[in-house]
């Protein structure tokens, strides 16, 4: 599904990713862990297509397509979703209106007619119920005045509405109390299917108690330095990142 080969990325001339290799297959949940400032969020942004980064070397393919040829919105319509670490506020735009616009633009990209209003609203209801989200949330402006937990829940809700093939969750657990964390994790677990995949980026092992990954990668200084099963996360939690550093010396 997602194939990244020897990816090197720089911003303002400073190299952040120094040759990342990664392959994500349908049905898999990958976790990317690592200390702050090692390039985790950069990797997420580069896959999503943010243009502030320069890809100096390497390839990113998604479903056989060269992602570097596609704009951010085209990648989204191809099925890539990014759950933001810091979701932005869009005052005056209701979540309903925002989602309807997004759903219909993605449908247009695929050559489909806009979703009929009734069908769309029914889908909103279904996903709200699934994720245990209060009805009034949908009438509020996108992220405006939301608590940290509400913002993250809203990201998961949008993911549920857009039904991506690959969902990247960038530090979705940061700033969440344990209840909000459970709701977010629960949402992800309910949306897991054999034909979609998740890339969960996190600093702490805590989230992985609830979203159990198939594969764990440790990103350190712009490179994936270790890859293992879910037990790697636990080991990392016990020994700390110093252990990784020591192993590299």
């Amino acid at each position: 599904m997602l194939v990244i080969k020897n990816l090197r990325v720089a911003i303002n001339g400073k190299e952040i990713l120094k040759g990342v290799n990664l392959e994500v297959k349908p049905g898999e949940v990958h976790a990317i862990m690592g200390p702050n400032g090692t390039g985790k969020s950069t990797l997420a942004s580069v896959i999503a297509g943010r243009d502030v980064y320069d890809i100096t070397e390497g390839e990113i393919y998604f479903m056989g397509k060269d992602l570097t040829e596609l704009s951010v919105e085209e990648r989204a319509s191809e099925g890539i979703f990014l759950g933001f670490q810091y979701p932005v506020e869009i005052p005056g735009v209701s979540i309903t209106n925002f989602m309807r616009t997004a759903v219909n633009e993605q449908r247009k990209y695929k050559g489909l007619d806009p979703m009929p209003a009734g069908e769309f609203l029914a889908k909103m209801e279904e996903k709200k119920k699934l994720l245990d989200i209060q009805a009034k949330l949908a009438n509020r402006s996108v992220n405006e005045g939301f608590s940290g937990g509400e913002k993250k829940k809203n990201e998961i809700f949008q993911m549920a509405m857009l039904e991506p093939k690959l969902a990247i969750l960038d530090e979705t657990d940061s700033g969440l109390d344990i209840d909000a964390l459970k709701i977010v994790a629960n949402g992800v677990n309910m949306l897991r299917r054999p034909d979609n995949a998740f890339l969960v980026i996190t600093h702490y092992q805590r989230l992985l108690d609830y979203i159990v990954p198939d594969i764990v990668h440790v990103l350190y200084d712009g490179m994936i330095v270790r890859t293992g099963g879910k037990e790697l996360a636990i080991e990392l939690e016990e020994k700390g990142y110093e252990w990784i550093k020591a192993g590299l010396v």
Partner: peptide, 16 residues
């Protein structure tokens, strides 16, 4: 960028 990432073109994002 946030709107783009949801599949919304820049033109429509500005309108929104």
């Amino acid at each position: 960028y946030y709107c783009n990432q949801r599949g919304i073109s820049t033109e429509n994002a500005i309108g929104l």
